[in-house]
Design a protein around this nucleic acid. Sequence first.
DNA 1: TTGCTCCTCACGTCACGTGAGGTGGC
DNA 2: TTGCTCCTCACGTCACGTGAGGTGGC
Lengths: 110, 110
Amino acid sequence: MNLITLKELCEMLHISRRTIQCYEKEGLMVATNKNKYGHLLYDEKAVERAKTIKFFRDLGFKIKEIKGIIDASNDIKKEALENRVKELEQKKRKLEVIIKETRRLINELI
Amino acid sequence: MNLITLKELCEMLHISRRTIQCYEKEGLMVATNKNKYGHLLYDEKAVERAKTIKFFRDLGFKIKEIKGIIDASNDIKKEALENRVKELEQKKRKLEVIIKETRRLINELI
DNA sequence: TTGCTCCTCACGTCACGTGAGGTGGC
DNA sequence: TTGCTCCTCACGTCACGTGAGGTGGC
């Protein structure tokens, strides 16, 4: 049972202490334990949980939405992910359009 | 001098009344006038101003950043826009990566 | 004792969203 | 008088950011 500290977890996932604190307050995850000094500790399962939450966040899901799908069936997860992929592709197309528009504007600003 | 109402401005730009109110409170723009009933009115210059602000917002600039560039020289604007385009392309690449990852995950969830 | 790290609140931030309470013409 | 539209506050929201104040080992 390898336990890591909150700081190590944050460095591993490239997120802040406050972000993890937010996940915990919303009930999305819990620290595995505390050491004798009161420092928060996380085991591998907790680390995986945090990674999953971050993955959903990167996909643009809100914390409350994540609460609704992270422990749901594969069918529900799959549907949510498929819908999200469609939205992300929409977003990507919009990004491409605005990048082009901006390029044009930059050239006009010579 | 064609004046339009706040509602018409909002419909034209596909943004909310509250969004315009926010731009105005931050000092980014002002209503041209009010009619005798106190309704807010905007002339073509104000409409163009609002369009420009929305364009910068779509590009991801914060309101305070917009305050710093909207009335600046073309050189300053150009630099800000070029930096932003680079960031948007970064964002686009990240989006592509996460879309692929999600597709892979969806297939694993069969 | 000093410096360093961690912890737990809790207010701040950003760009609006969402009423609340009031006005004016029809 | 009723219904509809607009207006101006101002609190709420979301996901953290940023101290504040305190603890414990070295």
